[in-house]
């Protein structure tokens, strides 16, 4: 009881202290117009809660989630096959190596040339960026399956289906989830870039960029907070999914 209370109260107390000092500093010295105190940020955020911001949040979330889902849907199976089938790994290896280190955002102008200033270009950009962390984690996960698990599966005469569903999938789940969580974070980062560089007519990237052009700091701060909230929300959603099975998702998986 007191343990769980402490777990919440400690970081909360730290937050209050830090924000308090920050707020206090704003009182003591006069901050320039572009430097907000926590109170001002909160005020700006509350003031921004209107349908227009709502549609921006929705547009950004949809783009990020669409790109992320495409990346996940491609990366998980491709990584699984690459990890299990040597020739496929050999074929993919040089491309993965080349594109992994490439700042994917540098492809955006090219994508715009191909697909125009469209959501196709933006979402492709997001999907390409999120693909790599998910691929790399999933690949490592499948490769890292304890060979003992597979031996047990053959010993008990598990069918291919039982082997895949009951052994391989749960064994890679923790690594897959790690990759997916990073994929979500990357998706959001790239969504902002894709909205700004990709000349998006809507979305939080547009909102922040407009705030910047108009020197409307309130709008910029509000947009940033919204971005953080989307990221927090999506990550919490993923973590909620992993709550359901205590044995699964890495808890108690030997290193």
């Amino acid at each position: 009881m007191s343990d769980s209370v402490l777990r919440w109260t400690r970081p909360l107390a730290a937050l209050v202290v830090i924000f308090g000092l920050w707020q206090l500093a704003g009182r003591v010295w006069t901050f320039p117009g572009y430097l907000f105190t926590p109170g001002e940020i909160a005020r700006a955020w509350f003031a921004s809660l209107d349908p227009e911001t709502g549609s921006a949040v929705l547009a950004t979330t949809l783009r990020a989630v669409a790109g992320f889902l495409i990346a996940t849907a491609v990366a998980l199976p491709v990584a699984t096959v690459a990890a299990l089938v040597r020739p496929v790994e050999r074929i993919l290896e040089p491309y993965i190596g080349f594109f992994f280190a490439l700042p994917k955002i540098s492809l955006l102008p090219l994508l715009v040339v191909w697909l125009g200033y469209s959501d196709s270009a933006r979402i492709t950009m997001i999907a390409v960026s999120a693909f790599f962390p998910i691929f790399v984690y999933m690949f490592a996960g499948v490769r890292g399956i304890n060979p003992g698990y597979l031996k047990v599966a053959s010993n008990v005469g598990a069918s291919r289906r039982e082997r895949f569903l009951h052994v391989v999938l749960p064994a890679v789940a923790p690594m897959a989830m790690a990759g997916v969580r990073i994929g979500v974070a990357i998706s959001l980062i790239v969504t902002f870039a894709a909205e700004v560089v990709g000349q998006s007519p809507n979305g939080l990237g547009r909102l922040i960029q407009d705030g910047f052009s108009a020197l409307d700091y309130d709008q910029m701060y509000a947009g940033i907070v919204m971005f953080a909230l989307i990221g927090l929300g999506l990550d919490m959603l993923l973590r909620l999914m992993t709550r359901r099975s205590p044995g699964l998702w890495g808890e108690g998986v030997p290193a």
């Binding site: 304890n146 031996k151 053959s154 008990v156 998986v253």
Partner: peptide, 20 residues
Amino acid sequence: GPSRDIGMVFQRATLFPWWT
């Protein structure tokens, strides 16, 4: 190949951590 007729207990317990 491996079969149910010859059971193996491995050096490290290879229990699946996702199940009871």
